[in-house]
Design a protein around this nucleic acid. Sequence first.
DNA 1: TGGGAATATGCAATTAGTTGCACAGCAACG
DNA 2: CGTTGCTGTGCAACTAATTGCATATTCCCA
Lengths: 181, 181
Amino acid sequence: MALEHAILVSLLERPGSGYELARRFERSIGRFWTATHQQIYRVLRRMEADGWVTAEEIGQDGRPDKRSFSVAGEGLAVLAEWLRAPVQAEAVRHELAVKIRGAAFTDDAGRAALIGEVERYRADHETLLSTYLNGEKRDFPDLDGRDAGQRLQHVVLRGGIAYERMLLDWLDDVLDTLRAL
Amino acid sequence: MALEHAILVSLLERPGSGYELARRFERSIGRFWTATHQQIYRVLRRMEADGWVTAEEIGQDGRPDKRSFSVAGEGLAVLAEWLRAPVQAEAVRHELAVKIRGAAFTDDAGRAALIGEVERYRADHETLLSTYLNGEKRDFPDLDGRDAGQRLQHVVLRGGIAYERMLLDWLDDVLDTLRAL
DNA sequence: TGGGAATATGCAATTAGTTGCACAGCAACG
DNA sequence: CGTTGCTGTGCAACTAATTGCATATTCCCA
C-alpha cells in the first residue's frame, strides 16, 4: 500500500538503483518500512510505467551497469497527496507478545526455551540500539543546524532510539515475569 | 504466518466462535496481532480441517446460533513447537515515520497538513493509553497474585502501555521539530 | 583458471491479507 | 410490520508480499 511512497521518499533523499534501494531497505529507511529486492524491482517497474520515476542507464567501472531511478514530477505530486491523507491505522504484528501470552499453555521446558529466545531477542535489540546511537553520532553531530531533511531524518531516528530503549526495559520486565512463574 | 498461533492462544485463553475471535482481534489480543473476520473464518476452517481445533454447535436464545471452537491436542502441540522456534524478525511498517521523512519534500501547506495529522494521531494514542490504563486497573488490580496466564497477559499489557507512553513523548518531539522547520 | 563474493536484475509460484459484498437470525423501537 | 442494529458466517476478486530460483558482470584471491 505504501511501499511506493517509501521508495519515493528514499529516491528523493538520494536517487539510486533497485539494488541500492534494497540495501537501504535493510538499513536506514528499512527500519521503518521493510521490503525485499524482488518486491522493490516489481514496484519500481510499475512506478516507472506510471511515470512516477525515471530511469537512467549508468555504466560503471569495476562493477555491472545499473539503472538509477529519480523521482519525476508525477511522483512528487503523488507523494504530496499521500502526505495530506490521514495516517492509516497500522496492522500490528507483534509475534513476541503473542508468544509471551502463549507461554501460559506450555510446560517448563517450553518456558525455558522462550526465556532463551527473549534473551537472544534482547541482545539483538541491544546491538540495534548501539547501531542507532553510533549512526546518530556520525550523521547528526551538531544539535540543530542542517537542512529540513536532516532534521526530519534525525527525529525519526530519535524515535527508533526511544523505541529500542523502551523495548529493552520492557524485555527486562518480561524476563523477570517469565522467571518468576 | 502466525495468525494461526494467535488464534490458538486466544482460544486457549477462552474458547469462542469466529465472531467472538474477530471482536477480540479488535480489542485485547488484536493490539498485538490484527486480522479481519474474513481472514479469521478462513484460517479457522483450515485449522479445523487439520485437527488443530474442534467446533461445537451452540444454540443460543435471543441471538443466532454459533460454532464455538476449542483447541485440540494437535493444536496444543503445534503451539508448543512454535513457542520453541526463534522469534521471526518482524516486518516493520511504520507509515508515520516515512511520512515525516517525506515532509522534507513538500510545501508549507503540506507540512501544516501533516502537523494536523500528527496531532490527530497523537490524540488517538492518548485515548488508547487511557484504555490500556483503565483495562489494567480493571483486569489486574492486585500487584502480583493470580495465575500464570494473568501475569503474562499483564506483562504484555505493560508493554503496550510503555509503547504508548514512548510514542506520545516522541510525537511531541516530532511536533516540535515540524513546527520549527 | 577457477571459485567465491559483491553488485545488479529479474521470473514464477505461492501464501497472506484486504476489500467489497451477501445473507440469515433475532431484538428493540417506532 | 418495517427499519435499524448487533450477532453470526461466509464467498469472490484482488493486491501485496514472501519464497525459491536464475543469471550476468566484475573483482579479487588462491
